[in-house]
């Protein structure tokens, strides 16, 4: 399961990042590391990007980048 599959209102925990390069490093820097809890809040009017709460702040990511983040639902 990836972050892209989580429906708004649900939460998940990060298992692993599969992206490479700049994107992965940025995502890491923003605090999405192994074991981090993420709550998906909403999707943008055109269904992409996604808005979520990570470590107490609001972050938005594109669906294509969310597909590289392996998660488990909680």
């Amino acid at each position: 399961m990836t972050l892209n599959d989580i429906k708004p209102g649900n939460s998940c925990r990060v298992i692993k990042l599969h992206d490479t390069g700049q994107t992965r490093r940025r995502i890491l820097d923003m605090g999405i590391t192994r074991g981090t809890e993420i709550k998906v809040n909403k999707v943008a009017p055109l269904n992409d990007p996604i808005e979520m709460t990570v470590r107490g702040y609001h972050l938005s990511l594109r669906r294509s980048d969310c597909r590289g983040i392996e998660v488990e639902a909680i």
Binding site: L59, S60, L61
Partner: peptide, 9 residues
Amino acid sequence: ETPYIMELP
């Protein structure tokens, strides 16, 4: 392609 990773402050 700069990643879109945006904080919504």
